[in-house]
Lab assay of single mutants.
Amino acid sequence: HDVTIHAGDKTIHVHGASEEFLRIIEQAKRDGIHEEELLRLIEELVK
Rank of each mutant, 00 (worst) to 15 (best):
H1E: 10
H1M: 14
H1K: 14
D2Q: 10
D2F: 12
V3T: 08
T4S: 07
T4P: 05
T4Q: 08
T4K: 09
I5L: 04
I5Y: 00
I5K: 02
H6A: 11
H6R: 12
H6T: 14
H6D: 10
A7G: 07
A7W: 14
A7D: 07
G8V: 03
G8Y: 01
D9R: 03
D9Y: 00
D9W: 00
K10Q: 10
K10W: 01
K10I: 13
T11E: 12
I12C: 03
I12P: 03
H13Y: 01
V14R: 01
V14N: 02
V14I: 13
H15I: 12
H15M: 06
G16Y: 02
G16K: 02
G16Q: 10
G16F: 06
A17Q: 06
A17V: 15
S18T: 14
E19M: 03
E19L: 08
E20L: 01
R23D: 13
R23F: 06
I24D: 04
I24Y: 06
I24H: 06
I24P: 01
I25Y: 05
I25N: 00
I25Q: 00
E26F: 01
E26D: 11
E26P: 00
A28H: 07
K29T: 11
K29Q: 15
R30K: 09
D31A: 14
G32I: 04
G32K: 07
G32F: 05
G32A: 07
I33L: 15
E35M: 15
E35V: 15
E35N: 12
E36M: 09
E36C: 08
E36V: 09
E37Y: 03
E37S: 06
E37D: 15
L38A: 01
L38P: 00
L38Q: 01
L39A: 11
R40S: 12
R40K: 15
R40D: 08
R40H: 12
R40G: 07
L41G: 00
L41Q: 02
L41C: 02
L41M: 12
I42N: 00
I42D: 00
I42Y: 06
I42H: 01
I42S: 00
E43G: 10
E43P: 00
E44W: 06
E44M: 13
E44S: 15
L45V: 08
L45G: 03
L45P: 00
L45H: 09
V46H: 07
V46L: 15
K47A: 12
K47V: 13
